[in-house]
């Protein structure tokens, strides 16, 4: 057993997920929120693609049968999830940019101003 054997994709994925979560819990800047969100998602992607990883497995393409096939499902799911992740990040940034340019606010405010009257 090599000294750094415990650093597998799954462990790193879980760590990244919680590092992202920590960022979301503590950072008040909206841009940092978006960054933390991306970190969190990267953690998930890494976790997925290393699910049931076996050394020396080959991609399930072609006719070669010498080695075990890699499970293609997680990778297929992650392609979808990455695309969705990009879309979500883009939308988040768009919202933020619009909000900043119009109202000049870059942080999550403490309190919503209580509006009880007027439009």
């Amino acid at each position: 057993m090599k000294p750094l054997d415990f650093i597998t994709g799954e462990i790193v994925g879980i760590l990244l997920f919680f590092i992202g979560l920590y960022g979301l819990m503590t950072k008040k800047t909206i841009v940092k929120t978006i960054m933390s969100m991306s970190i969190m998602e990267s953690g998930i992607f890494l976790f997925y693609i290393t699910i049931n990883f076996t050394e020396g497995a080959v991609p399930p393409i072609g006719q070669a049968q010498e080695a075990a096939f890699v499970d293609p499902v997680p990778s297929a799911l992650m392609i979808t999830a990455i695309v969705i992740g990009i879309g979500v990040t883009a939308i988040g940034l768009t919202m933020f940019m619009h909000y900043k340019q119009k109202h000049g606010i870059t942080h999550w405010s403490r309190n919503r101003n209580q509006t009880g009257s007027g439009h």
Binding site: F17, M40, I44, V73, K102, R112
Partner: peptide
């Protein structure tokens, strides 16, 4: 106000669904 509320809704729910995705991954594993 609507943009601010919409942004909170958006980010909170996207982060929430990230939990779901992670949970699904563990089940698949």
């Amino acid at each position: 106000q609507a943009i601010y509320d919409g942004m909170i809704y958006f980010f909170v729910n996207v982060i929430g669904t990230a939990f779901l995705l992670f949970g699904i991954g563990m089940l698949y594993r």
